[in-house]
Design a protein around this nucleic acid. Structure first.
Lengths: 339, 339
DNA sequence: CTGAAAGCGCTTACAG
DNA sequence: CTGAAAGCGCTTACAG
């Protein structure tokens, strides 16, 4: 009951030394027996393992990290964890990493390049073995990333900001092509695109793809907004006035699509059935709104991103300049059609 | 171009020693100047800071962690990151932690107590300073948690499994009361509850609250299912047959509510407008389905959970038995009414 | 106010 | 196959 600061408390966790003393061997032998890094006499090994289990010994990963210069931890900086796409991606990454005993340090940049910079540096200084990042800003994230170029293992996922680092994402253009084809087949001669947004790589890229793929007239029909439900809703409210007679709407992502759909339903319920709204990312929102969307192969993206890491050639000039240009991988997407 | 393993590469990062040599002082002085842990001659301090910046020196947090026995990292084990409630909670926690320079190690247990056990131990062995966990299972998570009792700083958030650790969540009963009152005021004399689920603390608790709060007849009208959209949808499809004449439906959470709503809309569109479905957690799903839900004070939950940590008395017997019974905190929820 | 030294708990050359 | 020793990069009593 007396005051007892942490430092004065009896040590809670056994160390290699404790195990070594109990087993009457050297710490080296304990370490080797438990890590399997080197051959140890089988009987001795068994005895050490038994004693170690008995004592509930677990190696202190921090000490091991310091010595081995590897933390078995990777960072992931996402721009917006409340966009349901990212939890799915986090889940996929984590599942694959767990198999390799790697843990995930997560940071949310809130689509703010300044916060992102802090987050990236925070994770880097925690000596993550690798850093996955979906850059918040197509242009303004670049500087932060490139200032970390001497740390070799940064992988861009889903969003791209710098050619100096590998990228794994989805083939946006093919996805947009599928959406435009789908709308056309449904009889929508006139199309429009909602959610152009220069700051984010995917929305910007989808806009570009749309302009290239839709017809001359439809290709020019583009509205910009933030990638939020609220922004989409505001536009949806006005859409029949802005583009009279246009009912085929390609949206930059599910957030915007969902908002547009709701805006129309609220302000123009009588027109709702004439519209066909499409999204992108096939999140729970497109399921919610029952609109067509494009499914990214999230598991493959995660696996590919991780494999870049493990397959990375240990070559390099040693001064931070990689031997080859970093891979830029775009995986095929799938159209998920809904009523 | 020649093969050069990592170990042979020129050291990338400056260390205290490098800074000390360049500044012609001892490493102790560098450490003190940069950490501010002790008074250092102001001019000297300024010079050291300048040199350190120039060299781009950043302390290796792993080494500092080993020495100080604190990692400035906390773990958070969530049961289902694809339930939009948890990303919101993660975001809130991370925001508050960031202010204190603490990073978040995230693990997803996928509602699986076995995975959860692995995740908890993985984070513990990484020496997190504290561990937040939303236990996957009301009963089966308990053993895992209690086996970690010698690690003092585990906080249960949103879900409860063991009385040995603090808990912060929402007042489920008050929330359910508000929902029942709301439905009654809308003229629904007969109510039913969908989504009873013994394995999860919140759904179980909400069911209990519902039974206590709804009338004698309504209180017995309870259907069990998994906490997923799909399970809710399956029930929704059958609901008019199961409970004819009952149109006021309290659901265990937004996932179930959303599913029920869709199931009804798909299978019985003519009845859809007669139903009033309510959810819980006020996620994007209740926004999506435009149904009434209960908003948890997520920011307060996060803040409260963190403050338990910092306000923890350093008392204790030193053998893992805390001086008092751990706090059990239920914060007030808010009814969000939608059409 | 500053420095020399110890030590956090591991892993891994180096000898034998 | 095993042990004694060095060392990862810090921080912090201990002396002065």
């Amino acid at each position: 009951m007396t005051y007892m600061p942490n430092a004065a408390r009896p040590r809670q966790r056994a160390t290699v030394r404790d195990v070594a003393e109990r087993a009457e061997v050297s710490v080296s032998t304990v370490s080797r027996a438990l890590s399997g890094a080197r051959v140890v006499n089988p009987e001795l090994k068994a005895r050490i393992i038994a004693i170690s289990n008995e004592m509930g010994y677990k190696p202190n990963q921090i000490a091991a990290s310091l010595r081995r210069n590897t933390t078995e931890t990777v960072g992931f900086v996402v721009p917006d964890i409340t966009n349901p796409f990212f939890p799915s991606l986090i889940e996929a990454l984590e599942t694959h990493l767990r198999e390799q005993g790697v843990a995930l340090l997560l940071a949310n940049s809130n689509n703010d390049p300044a916060l992102e910079s802090l987050a990236i540096n925070s994770l880097l200084h925690r000596n993550v073995d690798a850093l996955f990042v979906s850059p918040s800003h197509r242009e303004r994230s670049r500087e932060t990333l490139e200032s970390a170029v001497n740390f070799g293992r940064i992988i861009q996922v889903d969003r791209f900001a710098s050619p100096d680092f590998p990228y794994v994402g989805v083939d946006q253009r093919a996805g947009i092509q599928m959406l435009v084809d789908h709308l056309t087949q449904l009889g929508h001669g006139e199309l429009g695109f909602v959610g152009a947004n220069d700051s984010e790589w995917p929305t910007h890229n989808r806009e570009q793809a749309y302009r290239a793929v839709a017809g001359t007239v439809s290709g020019q029909r583009v509205l910009s907004c933030e990638s939020t439900i609220a922004a989409g809703r505001a536009i949806g409210t006005d859409l029949p006035r802005i583009w009279p007679g246009v009912f085929g709407i390609v949206c930059a992502n599910d957030l915007v699509a969902f908002g547009v759909q709701r805006g129309i339903a609220e302000a123009h319920p009588e027109l709702a059935t004439r519209f066909t709204i499409t999204g992108f990312d096939n999140t729970v929102l497109s399921e919610a709104g029952s609109f067509t969307s494009v499914q990214q192969p999230i598991n493959d993206v995660a696996r590919e991103a991780i494999s870049i890491l493990t397959s990375a050639t240990p070559e390099g000039t040693g001064d931070g300049i990689p031997a080859d240009t970093p891979p830029f991988i775009e995986l095929a997407a799938e159209l998920i059609i809904r009523s």
